[in-house]
C-alpha cells in the first residue's frame, strides 16, 4: 500500500521536475523530428539499392527514430540520480521510511510517459512527411512496449552506473561509448541483408535490433508475429536482468556508506 503511494509521489516529483525544464522538454520533442528529416534526406537513396526491401525510407525510418530517441534519453537517466545523490536528496529519502524501489520506479514511470509522448509526435510527424503504418493499433502498441522495455533496461543500468561510479564524466563516457555503436549496428538505418556479414551476426545480440524487429515488424504490411513476440521476450528478460543489476548497485551504494 505505502509502496504504491510512495511510487505515486515520487513519480509526481520526477514529472514536475521534467516539466520545469522547458528547454529540455522542447529538445526531447524537437530533436527526433530533426533526426527524421536529417536521416530521411541523407539516406533516401538507399531504398534504390537492390535487396533493401522497403520502397519508402520514411516508413522504414520512423520506428528507428522512436527507438533511438527512447533509448538515448534513457542512457542519460543516471545524470538525474547523480544530481539527487550529490545534492543529498537521495540520502534524505533513505533516512525516511520511504519504499526504496519507489525512488527508482518514479523516475522510470516518468521516462515511460515522456517516451510515449515523444513516440506519438514522431509517428504523427512521420505520417506528415510520407511514412505509412499498417495495423495501427497493434503496431503502435508493440512499438511502444518494445521501446519502453529497452529504455527501462537502459535507464535502470544507467541509474546503477551512477550509484556505482558517482561521476558525471563516467556516465557521459559510458553513454557515448555504448549508445551510438548499438544504434548503428542495428537495422536502424540499413537493411540487414546489406550489412557486412560480421555485423549481421552482431545484430542478433543487439537489444536495439530486437526492439526494431518487434516494433517495425508490427507496424509493417504483413507482420510475422512469431519473431515479434520472440524479440519482445528477449527484451523483457533483459529488462528484468538490468533491474536486478540496478538493485544490486543500490545496495552496494548503501553498503559503501
Amino acid at each position: 500500500m505505502s509502496a504504491l503511494a510512495d511510487t505515486w509521489y515520487m513519480t509526481g516529483r520526477a514529472f514536475r521536475a521534467f516539466l520545469r525544464q522547458p528547454m529540455y522538454v522542447a529538445f526531447t520533442l524537437i530533436q527526433p523530428m530533426i533526426w527524421l528529416l536529417l536521416f530521411g534526406q541523407l539516406f533516401k537513396s538507399v531504398t534504390q539499392l537492390p535487396g533493401f526491401g522497403a520502397s519508402n525510407y520514411e516508413t522504414y525510418l520512423v520506428p528507428s527514430i522512436v527507438v533511438m530517441s527512447g533509448f538515448f534519453g534513457a542512457g542519460w537517466g543516471g545524470m538525474a540520480i547523480l544530481d539527487d545523490l550529490t545534492r543529498g536528496v537521495l540520502d534524505r529519502f533513505l533516512v525516511s521510511p520511504v519504499n526504496r524501489a519507489s525512488l527508482i520506479l518514479g523516475r522510470l514511470i516518468v521516462q515511460v510517459l515522456s517516451i510515449v509522448i515523444q513516440a506519438i509526435i514522431i509517428l504523427l510527424f512521420g505520417a506528415a512527411v510520407g511514412a505509412s503504418y499498417h495495423h495501427l493499433v497493434m503496431g503502435v502498441l508493440v512499438l511502444m512496449v518494445a521501446t519502453n522495455l529497452l529504455a527501462t533496461a537502459i535507464g535502470a543500468l544507467s541509474y546503477g552506473l551512477a550509484l556505482l561510479v558517482r561521476r558525471e564524466e563516467s556516465i557521459i563516457a559510458a553513454s557515448n561509448f555504448v549508445l551510438m555503436p548499438l544504434q548503428f549496428m542495428s537495422t536502424g538505418f540499413m537493411a540487414l541483408v546489406l550489412m557486412p556479414h560480421w555485423m549481421q551476426d552482431i545484430t542478433k545480440f543487439n537489444p536495439v535490433n530486437w526492439t526494431l524487429v518487434a516494433g517495425r515488424g508490427a507496424l509493417g504490411a504483413d507482420p510475422d508475429w512469431g519473431p515479434i513476440f520472440e524479440n519482445l521476450g528477449y527484451l523483457a528478460v533483459l529488462m528484468v536482468l538490468c533491474a536486478w543489476v540496478s538493485t544490486r548497485a543500490f545496495r552496494s551504494y548503501q553498503r559503501s556508506m
Binding site: 503511494a5 509521489y9 514536475r16 521536475a17 520545469r20 545534492r87 543529498g88 534524505r92 525516511s96
Partner: peptide, 25 residues
Amino acid sequence: CVAQNSGVDVQATGRENLLLQGRVY
C-alpha cells in the same frame, strides 16, 4: 535528520519539498 550537505530538492518549491517529505512519512 538534517544532513551535512543540504538535501533539499532545488527544482521544487519550499512548500512542495515539505509536502513530499510529509507524505513519505
